[in-house]
Amino acid sequence: MEALQKKAKALLENGTVKVVIGFAAGTDAQTARPLFARTPEQAGKLIWGESCKQNLATYLLKPEVKALGKAAVVGRVTTARTVMQYAAENQIADDAAVLLIVSDDGQITELAKFADLEVYLAKVPRGLSPEAQKEIERLQAMPLEQRWAFWSAEMSRCIKCYACRAACPMCYCARCITEVNQPQWIPVATDPLGNLEWNIVRAMHLAGRCVDCGSCSDACPQGIRLDLLNRVLAQEVLTSFGGEAGYSTRKEYALSTFKPDDKEEFIR
């Protein structure tokens, strides 16, 4: 924690960044909250720990935060992957933000250039957390009807607050499909159809773009494991098309890339 504060203070003092986006203590011991440190004193409030889960790269695209000036963001590997994916989708310029990536053993790596991010990410281990892997295997082992019943029950708790969308760094559409209301594409009601449509549309739009941060399910007030949908789709994209989001600045979005030499004949 001290090393993180020291690094943040130095970045603010030498003028590299105007704001360090990290975590401060929250309302209770299990809760951390985003901190926007603009002075070295404020950087003294930075903390790091189990409760610091949110993917703060989300804020890099928020107008009020952009207005503060160049930012440093505290995070994990998934935060770095977010910036890489932003780069691939032309949402951020090279060297426009500094990343302070904290590893599991507390080492802090400072990265800003896309090229350095690519090198760093090439070395980190890939794959799902054992918990997510186990849960996905449990669900995939279910007969179709049982899996449908599981997801129907999960989705029935959805209150359409869109906290998943708001917390998701890749849900940055200025006008989300739910906001296209002439005509209304996605039903507003939280009935079974409306909930299913929203959550499926979101999962599909993130297929091959999700960076595996889990902020969607952390944000969900009803504890729906939306991350599992995204993680399975990421695996599907990897298996079928070979791409993983957030490891390079090359745009390899499986669902919108067309190649004249595609192996499938129907698309040519």
Partner: peptide, 29 residues
């Protein structure tokens, strides 16, 4: 207001769990 809401993500979780928030939308299906 800017300072208090810098971290606000703009979701509706607070309003939807609130016992007194009563704003609604009229929708035709």
């Amino acid at each position: 207001w800017v300072e208090q809401s810098l971290r606000c993500l703009g979701c509706g979780a607070c309003a939807f769990v609130c016992p007194t928030c009563s704003c609604f939308d009229i929708q035709d299906e």
